[in-house]
């Protein structure tokens, strides 16, 4: 009697969770099926499944629009920003975790402050700065901004991991004649691979998805990032829904793939970042 009651309650919970699942997935699902329908079909049967799969939207954005180029731009910006962030943040975190100097604490706070403040409040000055450096309307300018933006979180994660590696390991390697650079890259770096995965996956999402900075800094059509192109596209082709939703789907696939492959690291990054206090 008691057991059946508990099972009944469990089933109810699972049903509720399932209903919320549908609410979560439906808009994404709608995006994909809308992309696969013809425009006439979208207007006539907005909610039904496509009668026949129509890939013309997907083909058109790559043939008549420059989406291959925008894709490459986004990829270039995202990958390079992450590579630089990972590299400089590992160096920084190693120094802050291992050196016993009076600068360590103030510096840690100096960098951690960046986790709380939205960088976009400084956009007017960054705009000026990039103008002066001749980096406005350039992908390099974007990369520098994204690198600066992701350093605090990356440092936070790397420092936590490096502190867990016993100092004795550094010392014995040092006695064996290892240089500090070798200690860091040959001994410590391989031990903190999960941290590298967390930093990479967690930073990939906001950098790839960002529209704010490209909207302000990028003016030339050939330098648009994918998300900026999609945003402008949405305004221009409001009547060609199949085309627009193909573009939205294409822009979503990379982040979704990264997330589904590394959801463990993404969620870890999120919870540890937020629960730092």
């Amino acid at each position: 009697m008691r057991i059946t009651k508990v099972k009944y309650k469990d089933a109810l919970i699972q049903a509720l969770l399932f209903i919320y699942l549908i609410f979560t997935v439906y808009p994404v699902f709608l995006m994909v099926i809308t992309a696969l329908k013809t425009n006439a079909e979208i207007i006539k049967h907005p909610l039904s499944m496509p009668i026949k799969l129509n890939f013309s939207g997907f083909i058109k954005i790559f043939t008549t629009q420059n989406f291959a180029l925008y894709f490459r731009n986004s990829f270039f910006v995202t990958v390079l920003s992450i590579l630089i962030t990972v590299f400089v943040s590992i160096l920084l975190s190693y120094a802050l975790a291992r050196y016993k100097m009076k600068y360590v604490n103030p510096l840690s706070i100096y960098f951690l402050a960046g986790m709380m403040i939205p960088i976009r409040l400084g956009v007017l000055y960054i705009n000026e700065l990039l103008n002066t450096l001749n980096l406005i309307d350039s992908l390099i300018g974007l990369i520098l901004v994204y690198t600066a933006m992701t350093i605090p979180f990356s440092m936070f994660i790397f420092m936590g991991f490096i502190k867990m590696v016993p100092v004795e390991l550094d010392e014995s390697a040092y006695i064996d004649g290892c240089s500090e650079r070798k200690i860091l890259f040959r001994i410590i770096a391989p031990l903190i691979k999960p941290a590298v995965a967390t930093v990479t996956i967690y930073n990939f999402v906001p950098i790839w998805n960002d529209v704010y900075f490209p909207l302000i800094f990028i003016h030339s059509p050939e330098k648009k990032t994918l998300l900026l192109a999609v945003t402008i596209f949405f305004g221009q082709f409001q009547t060609d829904w199949s085309l627009v939703f193909s573009a939205l789907t294409v822009a979503t696939i990379p982040v979704l793939t990264i997330y589904l492959v590394g959801s463990k690291y993404f969620i870890r990054g999120l919870t540890s970042g937020a629960l730092k206090g």
């Binding site: 400089v88 802050l96 510096l107 956009v123």
Partner: peptide
């Protein structure tokens, strides 16, 4: 110590902290 800290420090200061204050 300075060599390790400097690259991150320069990028972060110039493109994040300085802009926030200067704006």
């Amino acid at each position: 110590f300075a060599v390790f800290v400097l690259p991150a420090f320069v990028i972060y200061t110039i493109f994040m902290l300085l802009p926030l204050i200067s704006s």
